[in-house]
């Protein structure tokens, strides 16, 4: 059912256990811009949830706050029932919340395979004493990671590029690498910031197929920022609509198409209309 928030007061309806990820009344200001203004919603475990909204709605800011890259002025973030608000990024990642970036940010001067090999968390060989004095102790783990990385690269069609520097990949390949690298981290929740932006339709289909497969095989939950409503319609169980830093509506795509304020917000750029209504 589509829940429409008519008055744009911060929704207080969410509780920490409403989903795998719960965002409650997040606010964040940049100088004169209120990028987030009481944004609340929940992402249920096992879903592929879309986060849509006009440019400048605050979607990337939300991802950054959730992942601990920037601090909110107020509001809370709960992951798996625990308060993770304003925790350092690496602590949030260690709990199994991995995010990708709106612009591909591979490690350019590492090979494709190395890009994946960095991802596993708390590697034995990352301890200084082991790295310097007892390299034998990480060999077995390294081999296991390597087998997994090679398999993931093969799944994503990047096996042939495994020894290439990541900076030399094409734009589409970089998007695939971004996802492959995130999968290698073994996340519980994967937040993708516009993974389909600027890639050709065939690749969009492949990425969609990968996401469905990952959900089935590795039970990864997805939150995906996306502008392409066809993709959202096909792929996502649940949609969160944002405008001017707030949650405008949530529901399935079919439900949202019936929702007048969503249609205006999305089709006309939203900001003026939403402000005028409130």
């Amino acid at each position: 059912m589509a829940t429409e928030t008519d008055d744009f007061a911060p929704a207080t309806a969410v509780t920490p256990t409403d989903g795998l990820l719960v965002v409650a009344g997040l606010a964040r200001r940049f100088g004169g811009v209120q990028a987030l203004d009481g944004c609340s919603f929940a992402v249920e475990e096992g879903t592929i949830t879309a986060l849509i909204g006009p440019n400048g709605a605050g979607k990337t800011t939300l991802v950054n706050v959730v992942a601990g890259a920037i601090r909110p002025d107020s509001g809370r973030v709960y992951f798996a029932g625990q308060d993770i608000t304003a925790r350092p990024s690496h602590q949030i990642a260690l709990r199994g919340l991995i995010r990708t970036f709106q612009l591909s940010r591979e490690y350019p001067q590492l090979t494709v395979l190395e890009n994946l090999m960095v991802s596993p968390q708390r590697q034995v060989g990352e301890r200084l004493s082991v790295a310097l004095l007892r390299p034998g102790r990480y060999r077995a783990q390294e081999r296991a990671y390597l087998e997994r990385a090679v398999q993931i690269l093969d799944d994503f069609g990047l096996y042939g590029q495994r020894d290439e520097y990541a900076k030399n990949l094409s734009g589409g390949q970089k998007r695939l690498l971004e996802l492959a690298r995130a999968v290698m981290a073994g996340p519980r929740l994967l937040i993708l910031d516009e993974p389909m932006a600027g890639i050709n339709p065939a690749l969009v289909d492949r990425l969609s197929a990968h996401m469905l497969r990952l959900r089935a095989e590795m039970s990864i939950t997805f939150l995906m920022v996306e502008h392409n409503l066809d993709v959202v319609e096909r792929l996502c169980d649940h949609v969160v609509v944002m405008a001017v830093g707030r949650t405008l509506a949530t529901g399935t795509m079919a439900e949202l198409r019936q929702n007048a304020s969503v249609v205006t917000a999305y089709l006309t750029g939203g900001v003026a209309d939403v402000r005028a209504e409130s």
Binding site: A67, A69, P88, S89, H90, A93, I98, R99, F101, R105, Y107, P108, Q109, L110, E114, M117, V118, Q123, V124, G125, E126, R127, L128, V130, A131, L132, P135, Y138, E142
Partner: peptide, 19 residues
């Protein structure tokens, strides 16, 4: 070592490594 690899990842993009 994996630690050296992580160091190089940090060299390439500190924020991503943190994430």
């Amino acid at each position: 070592s994996p630690l050296g690899r992580t160091m190089r990842a940090i060299r390439e993009d500190l924020e991503v490594a943190e994430a």
